[in-house]
Structures are given as structure tokens and as C-alpha cells.
Write a protein that binds this DNA or RNA. Structure first.
Lengths: 187, 187
DNA sequence: TGTAGCATGTAAGCCGTTACATGATTGA
DNA sequence: TCAATCATGTAACGGCTTACATGCTACA
């Protein structure tokens, strides 16, 4: 058995397996970065470019992907495709029961925990800034959701995008309630 | 200016500042771990024991905390208290506007993204297991919330605990809807 | 002509985890 | 007496980020 992959590896394999349906030449590291900025970032992380290249090299060494070099006038572009082994490994991982719970690092909640040390205005500011950021995020996700449409092949990504949207909506309404409660506290 | 602290450092300082109000002798690394398991873990992370000791040593070097050794018959216990410098640094950090957005690593959403590669039953399983885990978490947080009560000094932690509870509730109801949608898809 | 985007990588370093190592105290 | 809990640390290492380094291509 090969060394177990990280979740981020599987996420990248997921992007590649989606692409493989379309009979394309594969994806470059650069393109992979763009796709992960579009989708993965909302539910996992969007790895740094350098991390993607490192990961890709590792996946290639373990036979999960194959690369083909396109040499176009002095410049080499590497395109990666998922292999049968890669897609088998991915499917196996998907079917492996897991008890991993989502990890949340919430700097706003963390700060609010110490709200007693803050000016009331600063607390209000903190929460309002967060609501604004949530709206921006929600809008960004909406763009992605619109791109997915209701096409058969994008059913699951669309489902997850709807999930994300509902999550941002819930966060916003909770935060607005908090703003209210904090204001009443202040007086 | 000293080297800037990590968010986790500030989180630990927050635990220490809360304790300092009660005129205690300070907290041991071990106690700090217990407290972070109780609160921080829901909104940030609960660092490993070894990380807490490392962090504490660093905070001491930079004058944010002071340690006193209690030597009790062959055994040494170190208790840490926050210093004035530490609490000033913490307050400054709290008032520093930030645009950090929460980081979410959601293995369930990530897997659902690739739901097309899974057995319908496996997808159902995945989501149901998640709902169960959410309920456990919610119950754990409820215990913490009950401990906080409606005491003046725990107002903000209580507020944040309510936030967490509302978040788990929202996640549960969204996930239940997803289970339904996925089941309809399957037929 | 210059800047934004395409494209690929290496190096240094931090944060944090797991594994390892050790020993005292308390209560069933 | 034995297990759980209290208590403190070191070592090895992995994942990921930022900074650095390089150069082509398309377009305004």
C-alpha cells in the first residue's frame, strides 16, 4: 500500500476526476489553482500554488495522476490527468466511513468571547464588518452557483453550493441577532 | 516591538485574563488545556498539550505571562498568570480591525461535492452520520452553556455559546434538507 | 511599451500534531 | 494495587504558507 494521501490531495483528485469526463487534455497546476479558488475554498481550503505543484508531483510519484508535457516554443506546460488507480483510490476514500468533524477557525467568535475587554463600539464594529464580509462571500458563491446551473453533471456541486449559501444566510441572521443583543447589553 | 503573536497565543491569553479576575494563583498548562477543550475548541482549536507548553514558554519569554513554581515534595507545578503587558497586548489585538474570515474545513461538504462517484446509500450514510455528530456536539456545547448561566462575567462567553448552538441547529436543518434532496435524486 | 495573466518551480520557515519519556497523586 | 488523572516536557516530522526566482504571451 502506498502512503495515505492527505485530504487536500483527494480534493485535487476530485477536481481532476471532474475534468476527465470531458475528454480534455488534463489540467495544469495553474488551472487547478483557479478551480480550487472557485469551489474548494468555500468548503476546504484553496492551497497555495506552490502547494499544488508539490502535491501534483507527489500524486504523480504514487501513480495517481499522469503528466504530459506540451512543449510550445521554448515553454513547457504540464497537464495532469487522473489515472485509473487515482480514481479508484478516490472512490475508495469517498466510501470510507469517517468521523471527521468540520474544523472551524472563527476569529470573530474568538474575539467576541473576550468582548468584555472591548469597547462596546468595537464589538459592534467587529460584528458589522463580519456581516459585510459574509455578504461578499455569499455573492461570490452565488456566482459559482449560477455557473453550475441545473445541469445533471453538476448536481452535487450545485447541492453543496446551495448548502454554502444557506450557511452564509444562517450566519448572517445569527450575527444580526447578536448585534442586537450586544447593543442592548451596552445600555 | 516584540514578535507578533499567533491567534492561538491570544486565545490562551484570553483564558488567562479571564482567570485573573478571580485572584487565583494562575493556571497550569494542564488546566489551560481543559479550559480550551471546554470553550476554544468550538470556535478555534484546542491545541495539543505539547503546543500549550511551547506557547506558554514563548509567552513567558516575551513577558506576556509570568510563571511561579510550586514545589510540592519532589514535584514542580508551574502556574501562569497574565502580566500587564500581556493584557495590554491582548486588548490592543482585540481592537485591531481585522478582515480575517473564518476558515472552514468541511470534510462532509468536500465529499458531497463528489457525490456522483458514490453509492446513493453511502451519500445518505455520510450525511446521517454527520447529523448524529452535530447533535453530540450541540449537546456538549449545551453543557458548557448551562455552566455559564446568566452571570454578568460570563455574558460574552454565553453569547458566543448561543451563537454556536444556533450554528449547529442551522447546520442540522440544512443537512436534513440535503438528505431529502439527495434521496429524491436517487430515484 | 508595459502590465496583467499564464506558467512552473525552489527555499525557508512556522504552526501544530503525534509519539515518546517520565513521574506523582488520588480513589476504587 | 492498579488505573485514571494530574503534570511537564522533548523529538521528529508534516502540511502549508510566504518569499524568492524566472520567463512567456496577449492585449491595451
Amino acid at each position: 500500500m502506498a502512503a495515505p494521501l492527505t485530504t487536500t490531495s483527494y480534493a485535487l483528485l476530485g477536481l481532476l476526476v471532474f475534468d476527465s469526463g470531458t475528454e480534455s487534455e488534463g489540467l495544469t497546476g495553474y488551472e487547478l489553482k483557479q478551480r480550487s479558488d472557485n469551489t474548494l475554498r468555500f468548503y476546504w481550503v484553496s492551497p497555495a500554488m506552490s502547494q499544488i505543484y508539490t502535491e501534483l508531483a507527489r500524486l504523480e510519484r504514487s501513480g495517481m495522476v499522469v503528466a504530459t508535457d506540451e512543449v510550445t516554443a521554448g515553454r513547457t506546460t504540464r497537464r495532469y490527468r487522473i489515472t485509473t488507480a487515482g480514481s479508484r483510490a478516490l472512490t475508495r476514500w469517498l466510501h470510507t466511513a469517517t468521523d471527521e468533524f468540520p474544523t472551524l477557525k472563527h476569529p470573530v467568535a474568538l474575539r467576541l468571547l473576550m468582548g468584555a475587554l472591548m469597547d462596546p463600539d468595537a464589538v459592534d464594529d467587529l460584528l458589522r464588518t463580519y456581516v459585510d464580509a459574509l455578504r461578499v462571500r455569499r455573492a461570490e458563491l452565488q456566482v459559482v452557483r449560477d455557473m453550475l446551473g441545473d445541469a445533471e453533471e453538476f448536481r452535487f456541486p450545485a447541492l453543496v453550493a446551495d448548502w454554502g449559501r444557506a450557511y452564509y444566510d444562517a450566519e448572517e441572521s445569527i450575527t444580526l441577532q447578536l448585534i442586537d443583543r450586544v447593543r442592548r447589553l451596552g445600555r
